[in-house]
């Protein structure tokens, strides 16, 4: 029972919006930015979509949590290394849009 992994109540306060609704790429991006902003505890307007999330201080615990929230939101399985492979909001959003499009051809939603 070492003390290294200690926390003092600094998880995102707001429950992540877990509901997955029909949405376009713009909605997905907005949702993703909101989610990232929560984990980084910054206003959404401060998130530069071209900056690496690790540079904002997103650590491995929250990178996995973010990956899990995206999986829940989109109801699909993603790679554990998602946030390392697509390290910015821009890259993540583009990748997720592709996945969503591939899953639902011909405007299923």
């Amino acid at each position: 029972m070492t003390r290294e992994p200690t926390k003092t109540g600094n998880h995102p306060r707001k429950e992540t919006d877990m509901a997955s609704n029909a949405e376009g790429p713009a909605d997905l991006r907005a949702w993703l930015t909101g989610c990232v902003a929560q984990y980084l505890r910054r206003p959404e307007t401060e998130i530069d979509p071209t900056v690496r999330l690790a540079d904002y201080g997103l650590d491995s615990v929250y990178a996995l949590a973010l990956c899990g929230d995206i999986e829940t939101h989109l109801d699909m399985r993603l790679s554990e290394t998602l946030v390392w492979d697509y390290p910015t909001v821009d890259e993540l959003a583009a990748h997720l849009e592709e996945l969503v499009a591939a899953q639902q051809p011909a405007g299923a939603r």
Binding site: R3, P5, T8, N10, H11, R42, G57, D59
Partner: peptide
């Protein structure tokens, strides 16, 4: 300080 400026460990310890 700006949000994010208070350093924490990977598991959130201040």
């Amino acid at each position: 300080v700006r949000p994010g400026a208070v350093q924490r460990t990977t598991s959130g310890k201040i």
